[in-house]
Simulated scan of single mutants.
Amino acid sequence: MKTVKEFQAEVKKEESVLNQLVKRGANAEVIEAQKRSVAKVKAELEEIKNTPTEKAIQSTATAGFITFDVVKDGKTTKESKKIAFVKHNRPVDTKRVDKYIYIIAQDKYEKAYPIIVAEAEKVLEKEYTVVDVNGNTIDKSTATDYYVVLDGQHRGTAFAKLAAAGEAIEIPNVHIRNKENIGEYLTDINEAAKSWDNKDKFAVAGLTTENEVIKTISEKIGEGFNPSTASLIYLGKKLNASLLNKVLKGEEIKLPKGATFNKERGDKFIILCKAAGMSVEQITKRYYIEGFNSFALSTNEDKAFGALKEIGKLTDSMAKIKSVKEGDNFISLLKDCMTIAEQGLGDR
Rank of each mutant, 00 (worst) to 15 (best):
T216E: 11
S37A: 15
T229W: 03
K78C: 04
V247P: 11
E310W: 06
K72F: 14
V148S: 03
D328N: 14
Q106H: 14
V86W: 08
E10F: 08
D151L: 09
L45P: 02
E121F: 10
F68C: 01
K199Y: 10
G156L: 04
L124H: 09
K49P: 08
G250N: 04
E264S: 14
S242H: 10
T260P: 10
S231K: 01
V71C: 01
L248S: 02
K309R: 14
E125G: 06
I103G: 02
A304P: 05
E252N: 15
F85Q: 10
E79N: 09
Y102T: 15
A39M: 05
G166S: 07
E44A: 15
V133E: 04
Y287L: 02
K161G: 08
N245S: 12
G183N: 02
A341C: 00
G346W: 07
G250V: 03
L45Q: 08
E281W: 03
D267F: 00
P256L: 08
A112R: 12
L297W: 11
K246G: 02
C337S: 12
R286F: 11
T229M: 01
N329M: 05
Q34A: 04
Q106N: 15
A307W: 03
A241S: 11
K82R: 12
Q343F: 13
A296S: 13
